[in-house]
């Protein structure tokens, strides 16, 4: 048989160049999941002349606690070399490795902006840039909920919150992460005074809603603590420590409070 070894018309082929006749339709394979959830929660509230970003310091994988101290809130644009102090803060919650990568990218960009333009990046510009970074990985997203905080051009507290692919919005307050669903309605009520009305201002629909006004710093700090102690009670991924970064015109202040470790 002359062609005993030649490929059969219906059978497989020998050469790499000749496409296999047998198409591999039902390829079964394990797959690698490039994401994980490291739990935790973050929260941001603005006041008239300050912004607070807070996050718990627990890092989890499944039911394990990786560590009791893994910060989720970072200063952006700080430079030990030039003594340039930061005026922007970023919190990231979700997949911690992506969170760190995102933080480092934004940090580098804010520093480069300072070197190239000779002035610090505005929070508004930084917010837009962060959105672009997130959208840049639209088809392999950074699996994080980010919140950016600082002071705007008028010196008022500014807060921007993001979804993993870069949709963003400026807000007065925002909770993100594992316990966001627990904290957010509490904040609606206590920061934006939702469902609160002025007593005796009218009957039925004439009743006047209580207007949201910026809260003083001490009150906001206490609200943050209350929100987190509540979340700790009811969410297993939240606990260990509470880290707060407070941005004012005098710079960034860091506050750490212990939370329950159970």
């Amino acid at each position: 048989m002359l062609n005993a070894n030649s490929p059969l018309a219906s059978g497989p082929s020998y050469s790499f160049a000749t496409p296999p006749n047998q198409t591999s339709t039902n390829i079964k394979q394990h797959s690698f999941n490039p994401y994980t959830d490291n739990g935790g929660s973050t929260l941001g509230i603005t006041g008239d002349d300050f912004a607070i970003l807070a996050g718990d310091t627990r890092s989890t994988s499944g039911y394990n606690i990786n560590t009791r101290y893994a910060p989720k809130v970072f200063k952006i644009g700080e430079d030990d070399g030039t003594g340039e102090s930061a005026h922007i803060v970023l919190s990231v919650v979700g997949f911690a490795a992506d969170g760190n990568a995102l933080k480092e990218r934004l940090n580098a960009i804010v520093k480069m902006y300072r070197y190239q333009h000779g002035k610090p990046m505005s929070v508004k510009a930084c917010a837009q840039r962060l959105s672009t970074i997130l959208y840049g990985k639209r088809f392999f997203p950074y699996y994080v909920h980010a919140i950016l905080g600082g002071l705007d051009e008028e010196g008022k507290g500014a807060l921007y919150s993001y979804d993993p692919v870069g949709s963003y919005e400026r807000e007065q307050c925002r909770a993100a992460g594992a316990a966001a669903s627990l904290i957010m309605p509490f904040l609606d009520n206590q920061v934006n005074f939702k469902n609160q009305y002025i007593p005796g201002s009218g009957e039925g629909h004439a009743l006047e809603a209580r207007k949201a006004t910026p809260l003083p710093r001490a009150e906001v700090e206490q609200l943050v603590r209350d929100a987190f102690t509540s979340a700790v009670e009811r969410h297993i991924e939240v606990g260990d420590g509470l880290q707060m970064l407070v941005v004012t015109k005098n710079g960034i202040e860091e506050i750490y409070d212990p939370l329950k470790k159970d």
Binding site: L2, N3, Q29
Partner: peptide, 30 residues
């Protein structure tokens, strides 16, 4: 035979046609 691709391989009569699907050039990279 005239097909270099077939050289150095057992005749089909012995083990059946060689199945190169393990060398998939177009399949997913493992």
């Amino acid at each position: 035979n005239h097909l270099p691709q077939a050289w150095g391989r057992p005749r089909n009569a012995i083990l059946g046609a060689y199945n190169p699907s393990i060398l998939q050039p177009s399949g997913p990279k493992a």
